[in-house]
Every structure is written in C-alpha cells, then in structure tokens.
Design a protein around this nucleic acid. Sequence first.
DNA 1: CGTCACCTTGAGTATTGTCAACTCGGGTGG
DNA 2: CCACCCGAGTTGACAATACTCAAGGTGACG
Lengths: 255, 255
Amino acid sequence: MDIPRRHIALRAIHQTHCDDCALNPVCLPPALEASEVHLLDEIVARNRPLPRGAVLFHEGLPFNALFTVRSGAIKTYNSTPAGEEQVTGFYLPGEIFGLDSIGSPNGKYGSTAIALETTTVCVLPFDALETLGRKLPSLQRHLNQLMSSEIRADQHIMQLVGRRTADQRIASFLLTLSARYKRRHLSENDLHLPMSRSDIANHLGLALETVSRIFTRFQQVGVLQVSGRDVVIANRQSLIELADGKTESVTCNSK
Amino acid sequence: MDIPRRHIALRAIHQTHCDDCALNPVCLPPALEASEVHLLDEIVARNRPLPRGAVLFHEGLPFNALFTVRSGAIKTYNSTPAGEEQVTGFYLPGEIFGLDSIGSPNGKYGSTAIALETTTVCVLPFDALETLGRKLPSLQRHLNQLMSSEIRADQHIMQLVGRRTADQRIASFLLTLSARYKRRHLSENDLHLPMSRSDIANHLGLALETVSRIFTRFQQVGVLQVSGRDVVIANRQSLIELADGKTESVTCNSK
DNA sequence: CGTCACCTTGAGTATTGTCAACTCGGGTGG
DNA sequence: CCACCCGAGTTGACAATACTCAAGGTGACG
C-alpha cells in the first residue's frame, strides 16, 4: 500500500510518437513545429521494456546512438582499469544520456548504461540526429544546451564531492532529485529512489554505510521519513539548511 | 635561469589568423578546408594580452562567446551562494572554455574565467559560431565533440575526487597535465604549473596544505623534483603506479 | 629592504572509511 | 504454505586519512 501512485504515472507513457508523448515538454523537442517533431519522430526507435539490470550500452562498444528515458530509470558509470565503478549519473524519464560518448576517442561508448528498474527508452541514432540538426537549427541548439547542462550537472557533483560534508552531499542530492521529480509533475516530497544506497554512495564519493547512517540520522531529527527506497521529505526547510551547511544535524556534541 | 624555454614557445604565437596559428592541430579546425578555416577566421576576435588575474567573463554576465587560449593559462570556477569557489577547470593553449554556459538557464555565464598568467585568447561569438556550424558540418561536429570531451574530463575529476586518495589525485592530475603539455609539443616531464597550490587543492577537493605535503613527499621519494611551480617528473613509472594506487608512497608504516 | 602573497611544516583532531555482525524483506523452491 | 536464502540495508567499534589551526619560511616586486 505504500507503492506510490507515481508508478502508475510513469507506466502510463506508452505513446509511440513524440508529438503525443507526455514527456514532450521535458524531452528533446522544445520549440519545434509540429512538422519538425514529425521529422524527429521518424528517426526515433522505441524498444520493448528493459528489465532491471539490463545493459543499454557498454563501455567500449561502438557508439551509435543517444537515449532518452521514457519510463523507469537509468544509471551510467565508468569503469576504472582496476575494475571499480564510478557512477556518473542517474537519468529519469525525459532525460537524455550517452552525451559523454559523442566525441569519444575511437568512436566507442565511454561509459555503461544500465536499467535500475523496468525501463523503456527512446533510441536516437546519432548520425541521423546530427543530420537532422543541420535542417532544424532549434534541434541543434537544444542538443548543445543539453550537453552544456550535462557539463553543469557534472560540475555540481564535483562541487558536492570535493567541498561538502557527507550530510551536505546527501541533502543536496535529495533536493536535486526532488526538483527533477517535480519537473515531471511527480510529488516533490514523496520520492521513490530507483537506485541502491551503494549507487548513491558511489555517485557522491561516500561509503555506503555513511549514506545509510545519514538517512537514519535525518530521519531521527525529523527531516526525512525513510522506508527503504521510499523517502519523504518531511521538513524541506531543514533539508535546505543541511545542504547549505547552516545546520549540523546532530554531529558536534563536543567543543 | 630556471625560467624554462617553453615560455618562449608559448609567446611565439602571435598570429592573427587561424590558418597559420601554431595551435591549429589542437584547436578548433580539425578537418576543415582552407576556405572553411577562412570563414571561421572571420568570426574570431583577438584581443591584447590579458594580465594575470584578469577576468574574461564573470558568472551572471550575459553569455555571448566561447574562448580558446592562445597563450598563457585560464582557470574557471563556480561560486557557491556562500561565497566559496569551486575550480572547475584549467585551460591551456588550444583549449576551449565557456562550454558550460551555452545552455545556461537565463543566457548568463554560469562560471567565471580568470587568467592565471599573462594570457591571450581568441573570442568565438557563439551566435556566429552556431550559424557557421550549420554551414560547416565538420565544425558543428567538432563542437559537439569538444563538449563531450568536457563532460568526460569533468567525470574524470569526479572519479578522482570521489574515489581516490590524495596521493592518487595529485599523481593523476600531474599525469593528465603532462599529457596535455606533450600534445602541445612542450616537455612532458618538465612542467611549469600556472596555478597555485590552492587552486590545485580546490580543484581536486583537498586542502592546500595536503597538496603541499604531497609535493614534498613525492620529491622525497624521488618521483618529482619540485621547485615552487616548476615540477619535473623524475620517475614517471612510479608516478603512474601512485596514480593507480599500486604504490603507497611512504604512508603506511603500520600493519 | 620591507611587504605581501604563496608555500611549507607541525601538532592535534574529527569526519568518514573499513571491517564485521546482524536484520529485514522478498522471492523461490521444497 | 512455510522455510530458506540472498541481496540490500542497518548498526557498531575502531582506525586513518586528510582537515584545521598555527607558526614559520621563501621569493617576487616595489
């Protein structure tokens, strides 16, 4: 009974065309004419749902397409030579991924994308997209803007991981996620996290135990209500202050 | 007398046209015809040298151009609401910066760029570049690739800052820098760092004292020779092993 | 020759990671 | 239908890497 109804919302997207896709305002076509959307629609491929754990593309395979999430969630990661993973991003419905592989040295994907839950995606063959971008300046511009946004998102993570305490990172992460949920007309306070504690930890440069402890502590001070991967933001103002480092949760008892 | 002659090499670039610029192979035009380079050349503006500390663009000012470094070096950073800085990148001759501001929310620069030493840059007005990109597909493609590379570079830093020890971060940072110097036909072992310890620390998510200590320690074990901002890689193999975490420098004496 | 960044070095501490044990819940098979 | 199992998550104890605070040192430039 605590399976939130947002799941229904996500699954309601079964359209096979861009022009009547519920994600329209979030996804690629921003200022495109109907006729132009149609052109885009023609190059987009749609697949059957991917099960949890399915690999969309793998580091080292030839790069040929970008992807957008239609429903579900995706994580991307890089592998280090030593075999460890670095989670580079989580992608929600309407978000585009694979952008890091466009100019990759030898035309291979530079990261791996994997479904965090049952997920459907749209496939955007890159050659066709590039060609179409020449015809539709606003499409090309949008692509530029998406890449630029990805850069800013990554720099935001750099900032979190490099200069913020564990508390601040978690608080910021949740607020960013909340904003992205809101943008999709989902509850901004009632989040269902598609990723594991370990994924969050990896992405934020923390140990998974630290993430777990902080969730518990945030719950104890009444900022969150946590039940596994269901998180309710109970006190948004406190969470914002935690993210900004104005509060210290309950850490310092000394001094 | 330890002012290295690479400075002369950098300063030798005084050309006012792309087609005879020494950075040609590193910079924008990759597979462009001579006539096409000329078109690009027409939209590029070049300014007088900027002194150390000069601001090229500032967070919040209207975005209108990208930049490439002709000589000298640039750092970019984001400011947090609380007033702290996060150094997002260092840019050497031939490298392009400002890419993170292309799709910025309200058409403003999302970061600040500042000259680390006497620096000359080329100005690429973005509207003109976008228009030209429509005419020259290979230019547009190159721009896409540059943005994608920036994403990968940022993800590499994420990886360093999130999952590597201080030793590994410094070692990796120096190796990356070395590779970039080499690409510019400068000595790959005899580096002059244009940035302060504090900038390095900030960029890598460390305290400046930590950076200083590690430079000293790397010198003690014979991996580097350090004299202020002049760094000689004395034992590249060891540095690589340090970056990979296969060596522990001199840290663990216990266990 | 003094001043001012920038850098180095030291001492002490604390935040966060590591190791380890335990719980919980869901799914599967007997 | 129940029991088991396994992955995911939680919690605790301890250690250590890297930070903070603080006090010098060095070099460049006026």
